[in-house]
Every structure is written in C-alpha cells, then in structure tokens.
Amino acid sequence: MKHLNIMFLVLLSLFISPKILAQEIYQTNQVITTFFSTTPIEDIKAVSNSGASILNTETGEILFQIRTRSFQFRKALMQEHFNENYLESEKHPFSSFKGRILDKINFGKDGEYQVKCSGNLIIHGVGRKREILLTIQVKNGQISIKSQFDVACKDHDIKIPKILWENIAEVISVEVNVNYQKLTNE
C-alpha cells in the first residue's frame, strides 16, 4: 500500500509538474537593452534588441542573457572597440543576470507593480550582487518589464585608458525593456 502511494506520487509528479511549470514560464528573445554613456565631450548610445529572458511567475526567478556582440553603435569603429578593448566579447560573449523577484505579486491581476529584484549581474565576466528595481506591467495576461539601473565600469573590471576618461563615462546608465510571451506546451 505504501509502495503504491509512492508510485502514485512519482507518476503524478511526472505527468503534472512539467505542465504546471510550463504554464508558469514566460520567455522572450527580443529584450531591448540600451545603454548610455554621457560626458560633456561625447554622448555614446548603444542598443541590443536580441537579448533573451525568462521569467518564472511562480518562483519569481528571472534570467537575462545578452550577447555583447548584439549591441549596435552609431559608429562602427566604436562598436569594434567596445567588443575588442572594453567588454572583450571573444572571452566573455554574454552579459547576464540571474535573480529572484523579492516582492510577491499577483501576475494574474492587471496592474503596474514596482518590485525589488535581487541577483547576480555578470558583465565582462565579473559578477556583482545587485538589487535592481523593476516595473512590472500585467495587462490582459501579457507581462512586460521595464528597468533602469547604473553600472560602474570599475565594478566589472572594465578599464578606461586615461586619455579617454573625458570621452567615456565611469558610470553607464542601462535601460531594459521586455515583453514576455507565455511558454506554451508543444
């Protein structure tokens, strides 16, 4: 009888849990990430629109992964230097964030929620524990997230040569825009 109970539980978990999990996961590979470096001499802006993100609304887990090479600059040479000298994209092809939403919110209910999210931000191969504010919008079952935060170059071991200090900001402002799609069972 005991064995039967366990068997039943195992079977139940096999059939049900993937379904439940699938229903709780939202994903996209069109995360729009923009960063700005502002100095009196030069303003630099770059955009990536092919970042990947996954959100688990049940556990609050949230993952981001952005290819360094996907950032587009206005000046091609600047883009090359960004990859070659600063982010070293051949050694570190991705920037990522792996974290958890700390506040409990009801994703089933329409509205705008300001939440805190804590996790590990990895840029240039250097990880930092961060708490980042997110604005989550739920509308007719569609989930979107907006966030703005700062990244200090020296926190991630990104070295700016002295003669370019005036051109590149020490603190870079980052904006992230995500529109999730529900992961459907195939």
Binding site: L21, I25, N29, I54, L63, Q65, R67, L183
Partner: peptide, 11 residues
C-alpha cells in the same frame, strides 16, 4: 534545468 535549457533554446 528547464530554465537553463529554455535559455539555450532562446539564444
């Protein structure tokens, strides 16, 4: 595992 493998598929 699911989260990571989904991430791989996405990329």
């Amino acid at each position: 595992q699911d989260m990571d493998s989904i991430m791989q598929n996405l990329d």
